[in-house]
Design a protein around this nucleic acid. Sequence first.
DNA 1: TAAAATAATGAAAGCCTTTACATGGTCGTA
DNA 2: TACGACCATGTAAAGGCTTTCATTATTTTA
Lengths: 336, 336
Amino acid sequence: MNIKAVAKRAKVSTATVSRTMNGSAKVSPETAERVRQAIEALNFYPDTNARALGSGRSNLFGLIISDITNPFFPELVKSFEDIAVLHGQEVLIANTNYDPERMKICVRRMLQRKVDGVAIMTSEMDDRLIEDFSRRHIPLVFLDTAPPVPGVSCVRIDYSAGIDAAVNHLIKLGHNRIAFISGPMRLASARMRYKTFMESTARDHLDDNPKLIEEGNHRVDGGHDAMQRILASGARPTAVMASNDLTAIGAMGAIADAGLRVPEDISVVGYDDIQLSAFTMPPLTTVSLPRAEIANAAFNALWHAKQSEEPTLVPGEQHMVLPTLVIRKSTGHATQ
Amino acid sequence: MNIKAVAKRAKVSTATVSRTMNGSAKVSPETAERVRQAIEALNFYPDTNARALGSGRSNLFGLIISDITNPFFPELVKSFEDIAVLHGQEVLIANTNYDPERMKICVRRMLQRKVDGVAIMTSEMDDRLIEDFSRRHIPLVFLDTAPPVPGVSCVRIDYSAGIDAAVNHLIKLGHNRIAFISGPMRLASARMRYKTFMESTARDHLDDNPKLIEEGNHRVDGGHDAMQRILASGARPTAVMASNDLTAIGAMGAIADAGLRVPEDISVVGYDDIQLSAFTMPPLTTVSLPRAEIANAAFNALWHAKQSEEPTLVPGEQHMVLPTLVIRKSTGHATQ
DNA sequence: TAAAATAATGAAAGCCTTTACATGGTCGTA
DNA sequence: TACGACCATGTAAAGGCTTTCATTATTTTA
């Protein structure tokens, strides 16, 4: 079953079939209708590989993420896919597992499949690999950490807006010793969140006891362990802010293990607003990162670049995403 | 940059380059080395589309899931991908969003890309779509619900083992009014879990008050609402078993909302053992479904089928997966 | 030592589309 | 009426790889 069979049945050439399928204007309505009927009758669909080979375009966008197991990503992936389907684009998902070797494999996969563009949602990316894309004029969009290269778009997150809102919320509740559990400091996104928190608390002249700062790993166990260290240090925080929700959940566990209550003894704030955070005990107050908006912005950047004939000459889109504070039950008045 | 350039540089024909890349035995070690050096020097990698077009094989396995946002799937996807990478296969992930229309699109995508095999991890699948695959001799593997077709493999879950273990655990703790919150009854997997629970409790002559049974939706909110209905019904269960962990988490929330404690007033058991269940408050006792094992079994079934020349003639592998009970803190002695 | 078997390699066809270019027909205009 | 413009369609090359078959060189066998 191939385009030839369709052409034969519709009594036209393969070129006309191809043109019909691709919506080229150069086909008369009657012919087009005949071709469509033939396609229907034969239940034909074109071979994607041959298409990509013939045209050089693949209708594929790559989506590189660190780890699908991290609850931050599935929603992002889903939103990205949903909008892609709407535009007739397909999505090739690749996990790097935070491993530079694996990242290389991902990049190669994208290149080999002749993707039309790539959304890179991991924070660390080798410049040499970016080279590989830009040399081939493949549009890129980054989350948060775009290199200053023409044709490369970026979706930025206004970290300070979200974190300021969280800190202000805590201050209003009377907190003045706010601990912070960071993500792994080798991740740019984690460093950003840390830096923004420090700035925000410094601005408000809060206690900056270094014992209040611990490094986690953006997973539950890291948050748990970090919180234990903070509690053991004797720093006595009245509230904790975590670099992501998983960390916050771990911290809540450690607080409960120590016989303390959230929020009566210690308030907890997370970051990301993963689905689950609404259902923890107590439901988590957290900074919501609009993942659907991020996915849409990323997709649109690639889509526009794809439409313009010389993507690498256009400057690349910049989109700023504004996180918002979602107040639930894990924060309450400070009790000293 | 194509195979011709490599051939030229290595002073061989393109056929030899192709053979070298594919590990064909018919290349002398010296020639192979020369070719490899040329590939290295030119930083060449072959066009996947051309490869698939030329050979008819794509080195692609499809993986159809319902919803990447459901925490059951990410781990499955990850494990599947990991083992695929190990075997040099790639994975094309497709979400159906529980939507038959979308399922059709997924199937078409797979067909168009000439996948070497498809793992179908959703429980509902139109027979006509299966036809599409088997007509083209594309190996399939199902989770749980394989149609009786030659060449179709299946990874089965021994539901009764897991649920019996959970029920026995509760009985030993003195429970005799065990509620059950099912998944959506239109899903075969949910019906299986329900059926197995009913059999298990009937065998043990437990209270079979229909008020103890409610339908959820396999999400947190459904578990929450179902639990509220059970509590409102006056059936006074001493324990609840949920069809999956999200449902259990929702149920725990509803129990807390009602001013009751887990496990002191009501014990809760989940199903799946998603990562998060270890970190709920209290940590959830649940039936663990070994997702890595499922993924491996599924992959292997496809892989073996791919290796054998006539996949549809071999009977299809059957693999039984045994869930196990993980006892954490959400279950305790019944207090009436 | 000649014939046969084996091994390594090359030439070229084939996979299925897309698309540049060619062709023939229709229309409008001078 | 004739010529160019334009439209719909067809022809055939191109895209990058795999693979069959043919060819040559080498080894084995009798």
